[in-house]
Design a protein around this nucleic acid. Sequence first.
DNA 1: TATTGTTATACTCTATAACTATA
DNA 2: TATAGTTATAGAGTATAACAATA
Lengths: 153, 153
Amino acid sequence: MALENPPGSAFLLAAVGAHAAARFAERVAELDLTPPQIGLLGLIAASPGQSQQAVAHVLGMPPSRLVGLVDALADRGLVERRRNPTDRRLHALHITDAGQAALGKIATIGREHDDALCRSLDSSERETLRTFLSRIAADQGLRPGIHPGYRTV
Amino acid sequence: MALENPPGSAFLLAAVGAHAAARFAERVAELDLTPPQIGLLGLIAASPGQSQQAVAHVLGMPPSRLVGLVDALADRGLVERRRNPTDRRLHALHITDAGQAALGKIATIGREHDDALCRSLDSSERETLRTFLSRIAADQGLRPGIHPGYRTV
DNA sequence: TATTGTTATACTCTATAACTATA
DNA sequence: TATAGTTATAGAGTATAACAATA
């Protein structure tokens, strides 16, 4: 889209945001994890014990898609499914110690990523940027910490 | 990715950017155009007469992918392929009057989209946001007006 | 009969590589 | 032999819908 001169805020946001997402995906590939898997891991850590249906609903994705993501994390021992004894249909999702350790590494990578992306802004400018982006996110109905890319479009 | 509290700049950028891109795609669907088609249309308008190979290289996509995009725009009469008489292998890409008209509508939609996305910022804040984003884009090697989503990852 | 999780199927998007026409 | 453009094939990712287990 080479349309406006200079480009508008929305185009810049989309372009820089796509770049940020691509660079983050590159960095975490080192851990053999994808951004969707990491988003799920973070959500399970933040609110453990939820059913797959509940988590899928929060992320705005079909439950069938969640199965594969949980499989990948469970195969590696980062999360576990615990059957509810009173209603054996439910699989409560919990993070493991290995999962917590992985989240620690991810947080470090995230900070490095943040610094590299915003190295052309000083610390006060970064704060201003975060303020503006948070305000837009809230105004646009984005839930904090949930990437809208999960949603059905 | 619900990892940091509060979320870092990179995550906010990726989330807000994905939201911006999704809303823009919704708006231009009314014209029966997709964002990649629009990006190509804008590039052809900005530098007409280039070969498909050259355009594919600028956008960072395989030439085979460009064929389908050009087909879609040419079928609708928005662009045209002109064979180079001295080297008949080359197809120079040009925008048509209908293509220019479509770009006009797209620009209007883009401004509306920009206003809706940034309605929680005043005009001076929007200017600051554009400044910061432009600086990040330049620092990160993003070429002005080219969406990095075209690139091979 | 309703609900949770899973699997099966089909569809979209894309890259790679084969092909053609021109040089 | 080399290059521009095109077509064919195959792979990834995803949604929809069918299915099995449990209530």
